[in-house]
């Protein structure tokens, strides 16, 4: 276990799809600096390519 005193300012989130975005938003709203790193030119990931999502048929984007 790392001593609780050591804490850097920020979290690195790799991947800007729905999972990474969710993690980044939760951290950011807890007053934590986030670096959201995405390999491709835009956030969105696979979900941005979908039309609707099951089972609520909400718009995916």
């Amino acid at each position: 276990m790392v001593p609780k005193g050591i804490k850097a300012n920020g979290v690195l989130v790799l991947g800007g799809g729905i999972t990474g975005i969710q993690a980044a938003l939760d951290l950011a709203s807890s007053r934590i600096k986030v670096y959201l790193v995405e390999k491709s030119p835009s956030l969105g990931g696979r979900m941005a390519q979908l039309d609707k999502t099951f089972p609520t048929m909400d718009c995916a984007i």
Binding site: G16, L27, A28, S29, V34, E38, L43
Partner: peptide, 13 residues
Amino acid sequence: AGRHPNIEVLTNS
């Protein structure tokens, strides 16, 4: 995520 002041988005990275 793009708008949040605490998130720095680094695309193409």
